[in-house]
Every structure is written in C-alpha cells, then in structure tokens.
Design a protein around this nucleic acid. Structure first.
Ligand SMILES: [Mn+2]
Ligand SMILES: [Mn+2]
Ligand SMILES: [Zn+2]
Ligand SMILES: [Zn+2]
Lengths: 140, 140
DNA sequence: CTCTAATTGAAAATTATCTTCAATACAGTC
DNA sequence: GACTGTATTGAAGATAATTTTCAATTAGAG
C-alpha cells in the first residue's frame, strides 16, 4: 500500500505535524501493515529505510498516530503492546494468533448490549473495545 | 466476600497447588475485589496481611490464577495491566474509568457477528475479548 | 515427625517505556 | 535559494514493569 503511506502523511501534515524523515520511515512500515507490530519490530523495519532512526521516535510517532486515530493498539497476552494501521474510524480487530495478521471490522452491533447493561448496572458506557483472536485462512 | 476467598483456596487446592501463606494473602485481597488492581497494588494490600510477602510471588500467583480462569486481566490505556476476580467462566468487564470498579457480565451476544466474520474473512475465531469503559453510578 | 518437592523472596537481569537536553531539520518567509 | 524560529530528533540515562536465578523455607503426604 504505497498509497496508504501518502494518506497517513497527508493526515499528519494537515494537523500541523512536520513530515520528517524519521516519521516517514515509521509511516511507511505501518502502511504496509496487515500485521500488528510492536515498537521494537517497527523500529527494526523502519531502520531499513532510515538507519539513523531512534527507537524513541518510534514511540513518539506511535503516540501521535494513536491520538489521531490512524493506528490502533493491539493487546496481547504476552509481551508488549502492538500497533496496527486502522483505516476506518472506530473499529475492532480480528487477530491471527499464528502470524499476527489483522483483519479490521467495524460492525460490532453492541448497541443493544450497552443499553441493557446501562439499565442493569447504572454505568454510563463511554467507550468499548473488542478484539477477536483466531487463525487466518493461510495459517489454518 | 470472605466466602469467595475460600472458593479460591479450594480451587487451588483441588488443582494440586500448595496453599501457602503468601498465596493466601494474595487471594484474600483479590477476593475483596470489586476493583481492578495492578500487581503493585495487590502487593501493597497483601503485605498488610502477610508482611514478608515478595512482589515476585504476587506475579507468580496472578499467573496461576489467570491460567485457571479465576481472575482476568484488565487492559488499560496507560500503566501496567490490572487484574480482577472473575466469578463466571468466560466473561467481560465494564470498568469504571474513575474509580476502577469492575462489573462483570457474560451475555455478550456476539455469536452472530462471529458467524458473519468467519464467512467474510475465512478466519477461525477461537476466542474474543470485550471490555467496556465508562463511569459507575457513584462516580457520575 | 520426617521427608521431599513445590514454593518463596532477595537480588540481579531483562524488557518496556519515558525524560532530558543539546543538536538538527522542517516549513515557512524573504 | 538562503534565513530563521520552532518542532523534532536521538543518545544517554532514568524509571517502570516483569522475569530469572538460586539458596532457604515450608506445605502436606506418608
Ligand atoms: Mn493490554
Ligand atoms: Mn463473550
Ligand atoms: Zn495467520
Ligand atoms: Zn466509579
């Protein structure tokens, strides 16, 4: 997805962030992403593009991108958090346990569940967060 | 919930784990739990019961309890992971952003969503994982 | 009460993430 | 294209979170 990199870049520029070489390298890696990657993995791949890159910059860039909603954090049972490109606004992930490939989807149909829970518990539900784990067609 | 502590203890004993004083202290803290707590918080509270307790033992005990399914990990945006007593088998959490109180629920009605996704993506969905964030009645 | 394997905790090692700060590079402006 | 002020960078070191190691201790079976 060479195009997606440009979308990411444009989005950053629009919001007044400078489009630096280190950031471009990180964006390029994320734009490829059908898989979730943790900061160290992103760092390694991005250094192939821009060798002077520092790991700190990866963390900082990820933070900005999550903030803006261009990528999403993926929670796993072991190790650190991963990140994946998120094309739609609010969405969820279907993560392959084997190879890490991520399929995004946004129709989660939880409205009804929320309504009932709010009635039953008195909680005001502000956000939610759904992740499915499985095996992709290739890994089966 | 003094009773719940006994349930936890029984469950561990049944599975052949020794019921040591350090473990009992951790269980006692978790059995109270309407709130999620991270390892450091659990450690602090459990030391009030058994001062010689080591933080390592908290980590090890949590690992066992998650494995068995007696507690569940709670993922948060910042800081480390938290844990909460989980009474029903497979279930989900409604977490109060303000005070950390957790309401457990298990009727999540996602079967239909799964079926459609499996058809559409070819993934075999093996497990899932839903967390709602909001504000509890008290904190509103 | 004895014995042994499971468990513990102190310490040190790793891993994950954040802060600091001087040097640098982007994105205008001329 | 050179000039400039500000955002951004990366090295280094600090902190936070978690795991490993290992000798000492203890639960619980017999
Ligand atoms: Mn998490
Ligand atoms: Mn469910
Ligand atoms: Zn796969
Ligand atoms: Zn609350």
């Amino acid at each position: 997805m060479a195009l997606d990199k440009q979308i990411l870049e444009q989005e950053l520029r629009t919001r007044g962030y400078k489009l630096t070489r280190p950031r471009q390298a990180v964006l390029a890696v994320l734009a490829l992403g059908e898989e979730h990657m943790n900061p160290a993995e992103i760092y390694e791949r991005a250094r192939a593009i821009y060798p002077k890159l520092g790991l700190v910059t990866v963390y900082r860039t990820l933070e900005v991108l999550v903030e803006i909603g261009l990528i999403q954090r993926v929670h796993l049972d072991e190790g650190c958090h991963s990140y994946v490109r998120s094309r739609q606004g609010h969405s969820h992930q279907l993560v392959c346990k084997e190879c890490g490939r991520v399929e995004e989807f946004s129709d989660c149909e939880l409205e009804e569940v929320f309504k009932q829970l709010t009635k039953k518990t008195g909680y005001a539900i502000e956000s939610h967060w759904l992740e499915l784990l499985g095996r992709c067609p290739t890994c089966r």
